[in-house]
Design a protein around this nucleic acid. Sequence first.
RNA 1: GAAUUGGUAGCUCAGCUGGUAGAGCAAUACACUUUUAAUGUAUGGGUCCUGGGUUCGAGUCCCAGCCAGUUCACCA
Length: 512
Amino acid sequence: MSTQHLSEQELIRRDKLAELKKLGIDPYPAPEFPVTHTSVDIKFGYSEEHKEAFAEVSLAGRVMSIRDMGKAAFAVIQDHAGRIQIYVKRDEICPGEDKTLYDTVWKKLLDIGDIIGIKGYGFITKTGETSVHVREFALLSKALKPLPVAKEKDGETFDAVTDPEFRYRQRYVDLVINPAVRETFVQRTKLVNTIRQFLNERGALEVDTPVLQSIPGGAAARPFITHHNALDIPLYLRIANELYLKRLIVGGFDWVYEFSRDFRNEGMDRTHNPEFTILEFYTAYKDYLWMMDQTEQLLEQCARALHGVTDVTVGDKVISFKAPFARVPIYDAIQQHTGIDVREMDEAELLKTCKSLHLVADATMGKGKLIDTLFGELCEHHYVQPTFIIDYPVEMSPLTKRHRKDARLVERFELMVNGKEIANAYSELNDPLDQRARFEEQAKLMERGDDEAMFIDYDFLRALEYGMPPTAGIGIGIDRLAMLMTNQASIQDVLLFPQMRPEKTSGAASEE
RNA sequence: GAAUUGGUAGCUCAGCUGGUAGAGCAAUACACUUUUAAUGUAUGGGUCCUGGGUUCGAGUCCCAGCCAGUUCACCA
């Protein structure tokens, strides 16, 4: 790219870069810069009584603002922990005759966005702000693009970058300039760590299973397809890892889990990204009732880890993750919200019912899908507080064990929070013959035109034939849980790099 | 995939009924040795998303497209 596409400010910064080099200053030096303190260590640790502990501090970070006052200046630098003000006095960083370092390097060549290292000591300014009095400073990395930093006064923010396209495409900038965004992702990691700790403490084993699968199983969804050249076969990006984790239960691991990055070739909106993360775990010799207890405990612990309490604010609602959660059979839920008892209906009656309620339904849909539609359209949004919807009809749950008391039902629950499904769990079907029959039922649905019906996975059936212990399994949508726990309305705000249509190269500058 | 809103300086945004493109911050220059949205003075900075059309004249009106947000549809 030629320089005519660069903005005035970018051209000026390139000139400054050349100027620095002319002065013998490497704008991108190699040596380690030893850091002794973070901004926050000093900001909240410093006091006049303990000033000796801060007599020699060294820290590094990005210049966020500069207030130049002639022969002295204030600046704010930001490191991974936060921000702190620094104070630079000309005659201190330039004790001799040569004032170039201050007059030229600091005042003329340093910009907001540059990364510097400083050495100095802690002190408190006249106006009471804990700061670092700089004795030495070094440029560690010159920024060539202007950083669009927001300004704040009295809690009000000015000129913050709010354009979602800018923020998602240039997340690196978003993270630098919007501390709340950074905090959301720290919280997300804390959430994942809490879950991992919860499971590890109980003896679960974290495993990795294939992302590239020749049969995309374990869920009803359209997969991404790719091709392996050496084997010359199609491969699918996984839509779920369920069948692999159950193979591991067959193999004798009694409690396995995986944070599974799954891929589904479907629409995108504020709750769907083509790749997303689900925690799945499977525990031998347990059932779905046990799993509900575990889920309550896990979510309560997550809320406490992130917020210290079990009440979490989500939008204009307060959601309590205090265990136990309500448990409502799906037929009761439908009856409660529609007044219709569908439990004895056959497929034709269900289809009629759906149509009479003005729901989109057609003959390709089996009984399971019709009931799912009734629940999803008319009931789901009512469940704001965490609620287990339990005992689904067998037709919509091809991998689930039949209910111990009613063979038309399965031992399954979905956890609804804030009107959305957060988790899906069941007593796993371990009867190989029943599983084969259910797969065959799915194959028939596929022939009827259901493009989300499951493929038959013969290797999985073979595994079951060797015997799988009775097992409880669950999948928890981590992105959606993160949205709840961090009070974000869009999945894009809990994904560091949400999927975007590729931008034209002219926008992403500097191909020179 | 559909509807809808938006795209103007590095950022946040004005720009009326079509008449030479505006502000604040950021940048540049000067002044200022404890400021904090530092301050004061001066200055520069634009592919008005792209391509067509209407018009004497288009940021503005019309058509097509691109990108994004929102709401649907599909789904977790």
